[in-house]
Design a protein around this nucleic acid. Structure first.
Lengths: 190, 190
DNA sequence: CTACTAGCGCAGTGATCAGTGCGATACTGG
DNA sequence: CCAGTATCGCACTGATCACTGCGCTAGTAG
């Protein structure tokens, strides 16, 4: 930890290395195979073949399909999602809900969520909502730091997060922007 | 419809027959294996062996694991669930939510839901909510027939059904009776 | 530049799974 | 009681999967 890398050069996993390259290829293969929705339960050899990687590698690094899916879901739902900051709680929540809805609308993402829940069980399900819950908490806390009253995290989850996930995963109804805005309106009746 | 059987003797599937017996055994085997939560993706031979039935039979009647799970989920979420009728909408909804919460609390049922979603995709997810949506609709319609104003089905689903399913499937938080009642209270603020 | 470590590819094994004719058995109506 | 039919059990084959030593190559530190 001296010149180039800022932290954690302890292992051989540096961005750009071979390890990271394989990881990215495998992740992409999982997303593609899950999106293809053939019905078959996503086997390790299939993932390896699609990624241009030997099955041995996948077995060693991830072990089982459940952990692999949980890993993919975690990295999928962690990055590239900024906490909105519009200045008001209503604006933040509407933006947040809209972004989440747009995300869950994607059939590939939805298939990933379903597969992860099925194979990863408790751990997989947690990976799918993962960062989203903390982002919601951050929005509420920032509003509270402004000195404003906010609904509890539990109530906000029930009113916004839960309907979004439920409608996306359990039904085939579309997540329209009007409906998404309605969720926030019912939570903040002002 | 004369003495014993009431209806539908058209095919060989009569209650008590061999066909129904096999069906029940396979269904029970699926529920048990899914509940065991070993992580393995529930194969047909495993189900057949557990049910004391030959794998051929399962292959012929259901074909794939997804359809089998969907069938089990459908029959699991269809029967033995009466629409409550307490006289008031609030009472009906609280009773309905409480029953549903108690049902989703069962780890075996929860595992079945997760597995069905993972393997059955769109169809499997629909089987899991199946009858519940219609029961909710029935409650609302009855209240409307009494001449009372009710929230829309969509709004009720978002406020009651969605949080129940979301919390059960995606989190490990308990579905306590107090929290369940809170859902109805927020929908009917009166 | 050189030694070191970690990760990957290769080949192969035992086990399990999906799927298919065939005969036997249990229910059906006459 | 007797034919007819649908369903189930059995034995089997091809294919796939999970998993394991061994050698090689890419990155790392001195």
């Amino acid at each position: 930890m001296s010149t180039t890398a800022s932290s954690a050069p302890q292992t051989g996993s540096r961005p750009g290395g071979r390890s990271a390259r394989v990881r990215a290829a495998v992740h992409r293969a999982v997303r593609e195979l899950v999106a293809d929705e053939a019905g078959d339960p996503l086997t390790i050899p299939a993932v390896a073949a699609r990624a241009g990687v030997h099955a041995t590698t996948v077995y060693r690094r991830w072990g089982a399909v459940g952990e692999l899916l949980a890993d993919v879901a975690t990295s999928r739902f962690s990055g590239d999602f900024v906490v909105p900051d519009t200045g008001s709680l209503r604006g933040d929540l509407e933006r947040y809900a809209s972004d989440l809805a747009k995300d869950l609308c994607d059939p590939d993402t939805l298939a990933l969520v379903r597969a992860t829940i099925g194979a990863g069980g408790e751990q997989g399900a947690a990976a799918c909502r993962g960062e989203r819950q903390r982002q919601l908490e951050a929005i509420l806390e920032r509003e509270q730091d402004r000195g404003e009253q906010t609904p509890s995290l539990e109530r906000t989850t029930d009113a916004v997060l839960a309907p979004l996930y439920y409608r996306a995963v359990f039904t085939d109804d579309p997540l329209t922007p009007e409906w998404t805005r309605t969720l926030v309106s019912h939570l903040l009746p002002d």
